[in-house]
Design a protein around this nucleic acid. Sequence first.
DNA 1: TTTAGGG
DNA 2: CCCTAAA
Length: 690
Amino acid sequence: MVLQKRLDYGFNGYQVPAMPRATRSARRRGTVRRRVEENQMCAFDLLATVAGNLLLEKESTPTSSNTSNQKDKCSIVNQDEQDGNKTLKVEPCDQGSCDKNFFVSENVSHAPNVNHSSKESSFPQNDDHSGFTSIMTTSNCTERLVAKNSDNGKIKNEVGSFCSQIEEGLSMYRESGGCELQGEAKTLVKDESNSTGKVLTGTVPDMCSSEYPAPFKGKPPAMPSSDSSPKAPLCGDHDPLSLLPSHRDNVKVVSRDDDENSSGCTHPSTTSRYFKRASRIGDRRIRKILASKHWKFGSKFKDETLSNPDGFIKPIYRSRKDCYKRQRAQMNVPFKKRKLFDHSTVWTSDGGTNNHGFFNSTEKGIGDASASCPKLQGGTGKSCSVSGQHTSFQCRDSHVKLRIKSFRVPELFIEIPETATVGSLKRTVMEAVTAILGGGLHIGVLLKGNKVRDDNITLLQSGISHDNQLDALGFTLEPNLSQSPPPLCSGDSPHLLPGDAPQLLARSPHNQDIVDHVSANVPPESHVACLGNLVESDHDSAPSPTETSVDKSTTDSKALVPVPAMSVEALSVVPALRKSNRSEIAQRRIRRPFSVSEVEALVQAVEKLGTGRWRDVKLRAFDNAKHRTYVDLKDKWKTLVHTARISPQQRRGEPVPQELLDRVLCAHAYWSQQQAKQQLKQQPETCLLL
DNA sequence: TTTAGGG
DNA sequence: CCCTAAA
């Protein structure tokens, strides 16, 4: 069975300067967007191809019988199962079957995301900010190496082995801090973790200060630093160089750095919320800040144009770092405000000569892409609709032939300064599209407006094979939301991000230093471009090997992405590593049990601040732990109180020292009393007033 | 955005 | 942890 699909990527819409809202759902969208952004670099080349005409061809082994039980074969979207048959190949139209195969299949499309692991060794309980901030940084880099064979445009399909290679190869970046591609070694980032990483395991001195309510003064909380984080073996660190693909003629290395971490500020909100906020913020930021400022630096990059030897023009992604640095330098923004800078989704794209263009895929746009489709049950969604036609349908041989006239790209929102050139606009759009494409696309199948979710049913079973249904058949491109679960190495230490892409940013996980942009090191003229992608580090000590949180994947991406022109590998590789199937955009955050040290910190903070001031508690004791929101802390306190009241036998999970539980009860009682007193005081007052 | 609580 | 009403 051969399905030939021609893909025309159309924009569902893009807006120039319009920035969509920020709704609660932004969180999800933000996440999605983030993901997209994360991977954006991915397929530049693909983009080019897309711009032209793409043929999506699916070749599946023909099933001789209609009753083929081989479900997979019928599914257009692949699943996890690696079935060669399910692979979608994107090929240039003119070549019906050449070796250029872009694998779009999900199987392959797992981006090598990295996990990030972060670890906070302890809660820095510094009072506030001064000393160190925590940050973890993990940058996840999404990296892609794409090899291009310039000859004849033939691309070698080396996906299988390549994927693994890449991942490993990338890891090297992290360690060495430099990558060498094609004989060019560029230092992208230095991993400073070793040098700067100090583990803070102590108690915060001030905790014992007089602030502590009288009742507790007597017992200054001792902070056991139980948290020493064992360093897990670095997974994925292998001899990178050897693994790096050497055959690529042209490798484009793009590094994206997220500066989120660099700011070093922690956000009180949940990670997922971060995204939401981030995206929103990002927009705002883009709108407001970039609009006015970006071109300050914009000019700076003007001259940077990179073109491949073979005449391929490669857009260079500059790191936003520069921009951000300036901004930061200019403003000493208070904690809350600084948040705004986090997760900015904007990166300056100077595709060569102009860098005025900023591309921002808003949550909505991207989010819709992925999210809306499923919702489109009534009919094909605007953004998701794909005009598809079947050129022919042959029941007899049980082959379904489809011709997809065009694919619609989910909404793209682009903001670009008025002063930007048309060329930059084009590039910006291109980048936006690339970002989406590079994000590891999923193909959605819509039948009469309903999304066909079950990939295992046959076309026959789904009804797609019915002639009359073909008109109702639609395909959608969906951002790949799936997260790549961190490798099994659940190292607490950030260094360990096993499967991760090389982390470009210097991280000092333990001391949680602020990571500054390392990307600065990258010479402008180098082919290494940095895309600014903010990395959200959550250095949580939570070892969650199985973690697949969206947040993480989205957040962590810092990447150095070598993107060779038109390489199949890029697509196949990147996506391949990615975990799939989680199309759910918003996933429940992974569970991260509080460690004893965290509990300690929490108890200490609550003893001091009382209940009801969770934000302060967060700031005080968990400022570095981005993944602990004040809500989380509040919830934890709730459970702690509960735990303290029940018998030890009934308790589950990591045992909390009785001493701590006692303090919990004590503090809880104390503050409850205080609260009651407060109310009593107020009662009379109100009465008097009345 | 935070708090406070229920789920 | 999530979700939300309230503030």
